[in-house]
Design a binder for these strands. Sequence first.
DNA 1: CTCCCTGCAAACATTTTGCATATCA
DNA 2: TGATATGCAAAATGTTTGCAGGGAG
Lengths: 140, 140
Amino acid sequence: MADLEEQAEVMRRAGYRLTEPRKTVLRVLAAAHGFMDAAAILESGRLIHPHLGRVSVYRTLDLLTELGLARKVHAADDCHSYARADLLEGHYLVCERCGQITEFPCEGLDEMIKSVTQRYGFSVHGHLLQLEGLCPSCQR
Amino acid sequence: MADLEEQAEVMRRAGYRLTEPRKTVLRVLAAAHGFMDAAAILESGRLIHPHLGRVSVYRTLDLLTELGLARKVHAADDCHSYARADLLEGHYLVCERCGQITEFPCEGLDEMIKSVTQRYGFSVHGHLLQLEGLCPSCQR
DNA sequence: CTCCCTGCAAACATTTTGCATATCA
DNA sequence: TGATATGCAAAATGTTTGCAGGGAG
């Protein structure tokens, strides 16, 4: 799960400081149950840390992505949003309406990846299996 | 395969005219062996139809997407590119280096989708299975 | 001949960069 | 204290809109 202290440790080890803006972005993402774009993170972040600057949000998101603490979400129309990394390991359901993300275990996927890569000679480093649709509550 | 006449028919049936700019974008995408963004399509398109305007490229891409003749590619950093629809039905390999796309048959995926959706109560309308890595020639 | 489509320019939205100041370790 | 990181403003980038003229059917 999203543990701030654990994430802080990852940052420190990589030689980065744990500053207020960075902590703020981490907290905002940790509290989200779906994905958020830079503008939404800024808005929420300013409730915690009013001095937060827009630029720091962008820079922090880049940093978190680089460190593997956050990930970009590739929804059909929205490719500029982020979620904390532990919320999406690469295979998840996205609700088209409310944006909620539900991660699911990827049983069978590794198998498929292996056979496909052997067949085509690709060396695969990452995967993205995203199912788009409506979550139970948005179906009503 | 990408057959211009066939695509033209889809457009006509939907009540759209087959104009020079639209034909140009279709030809450019048909000739691509990977994905291209609006700027690249404009550049290539102008070799065929020098009068092509930037705006028409955007509008045509929207239209083609709507009609199911093109699709957005969700590469890690590049979410603003398109490829012709028959090149990617939702499950493909993307080379991180050269951008080439290789579609593969999705045996087993439907099965997986069904079980996952039953379990979580989602109604799924679309999927995206993308494997990122290096194609055989870029591995060297 | 009519309406849809185009291209230009300008408006908009979003992200990045330059730089002086503030801050974490 | 010193190197990093911040925040502002401005620039760069990417996309959309308004509108007069052009072309497909």
